[in-house]
Write a protein that binds this DNA or RNA. Structure first.
Lengths: 125, 125
DNA sequence: TTAAACCTTGACCTCGACGTCAAGGCAACG
DNA sequence: CGTTGCCTTGACGTCGAGGTCAAGGTTTAA
């Protein structure tokens, strides 16, 4: 399939696919007229990238998964480097959750204090 | 005081202070040689900006607080627009917390599955 | 006198993941 | 033959909050 169809089926844009290629994440055969030609495997690879991005991984973080798939493994996370990315990302998410809980508490405190000093602006409205 | 001292006392940089000025958040008298001259009130204002940024508000979100202080109110959050920013930000934090909890769950699931299929990479190491 | 340590404006750089536009080639349909 | 709809590469724009020069003026201490 060509780049437009791959983009549509994967749920992304042609620009993103060309960008992935420029980053070495996606390779493409070229047909005689110079058009990029993709396989079903490429669709799976792009889907993997997108679903990893959806859970907060940066493009760079998806690289181990892509290389794992390219190496012939059945899943992108069948390799140790991918698992390490999971672990690092999980730690990052935990840290962020902690920080956000603190921030939320401070926001609540400030909001309560401000409302107390400025009656008349209550609730959402 | 001049910009260097204000930056040091507030715990930021001169570049940041000039940037705030370019955004209309901070005004400065000029002494005869063209140097910016700041008051203790300015220090309080900058401190307010920094502490609001520390709890996740964008610079633009600090504007109502700055304007509230400039209008002569005792605190930056003594005005309704500031309170609305608190409320909006709180909602954003809540949404993010929810999303992160989901993401965390997906990461855990994927990690567990990957480790099950690829024994030998357990724990942090 | 001259160097150090301030200050000024202006302008380009950073990061991530593309968006958007330009200029042009190729294929198929009417 | 023309137009529509693909495709190509290349290059600049976006966003937030400043960082990092460059080139020069001012003040103070040695």
């Amino acid at each position: 399939m060509r780049i437009g169809e791959l983009a549509q089926r994967a749920g992304t844009t042609t620009r993103a696919l060309r960008f992935y290629e420029s980053q070495g994440l996606l390779g493409a055969r070229r047909s005689s007229n110079g058009y990029r030609e993709y396989s079903e495997d490429d669709l799976r690879l792009v889907s993997e990238i997108l679903s990893l991005q959806a859970i907060g991984l940066s493009l760079e973080d998806t690289r181990p998964f892509v290389e794992c798939l390219r190496a012939g493994h059945p899943a992108g996370d069948s390799c140790a480097p991918s698992i390490e990315v999971y672990q690092r990302k999980l730690a990052e998410v935990d840290a962020l959750l902690d920080r956000l809980a603190v921030v939320r508490g401070e926001l609540l405190t400030k909001l309560a204090g401000a409302i107390a000093r400025h009656p008349g602006t209550c609730g959402v409205e």
